[in-house]
Amino acid sequence: MQQVPEFDMSRRDILIVGAVSAAGAAAPGLASGQETVAAPVVGKVILTINGTARALEVDLRATLLDVLRETLKLTGTKKGCDHGQCGACTVIVEGRRINSCLTLAVMHDGDKVTTIEGLGTPGDLHPMQAAFVKHDGYQCGYCTPGQICSAVAVLEEIKAGVPSHVTADLNGRPKVTPDELRERMSGNICRCGAYSNIVEAIGEVAGVKA
């Protein structure tokens, strides 16, 4: 174990012999038939996921998304593009929606994370989940957890007065309008094309006709 400031991590170098000797003939740089491959470096992190504190040891390379899905088995959050382009991985961290695929779990020590599993349950749906069901805001459902986490946070952003690209008056209060919802939800892609129903569902939760 090697101590790094504020942080425990360990690193082992593994000598790989068998795997490389098999490929030795095609790897001219490896005259000895041996290669040193770095093993994963791990770190400790405490995350509060949907209200429960979890102490975890994670590969430093693990994204928040991978820790949610693979370590904690919270598979509601989806991996779509894994590059921040589709929004399927959207979760709410410290009250803000982010792409969980583009952040390392180890960067979130002490943070509170809300996933789709933390918004509601099958017997007690969050109003946004109920509205998506009512308005048929999905077909295949793959993007839906990200859409719903994003939508919940969008209404909070509007309430907090955060402007958007389509807000006409930068110095006024933004309103919930179909244009505002479409713009603010542009980081969540739905390949089935349920957009109009998604906008209606969000509008209903906000108490406006979208």
Binding site: P5, E6, R11, A38, L60, R61
Partner: peptide
């Protein structure tokens, strides 16, 4: 992704 080491700056 390649492995890396990590520290938090103070």
């Amino acid at each position: 992704m390649r492995t890396f080491t990590y520290e938090r700056a103070k």
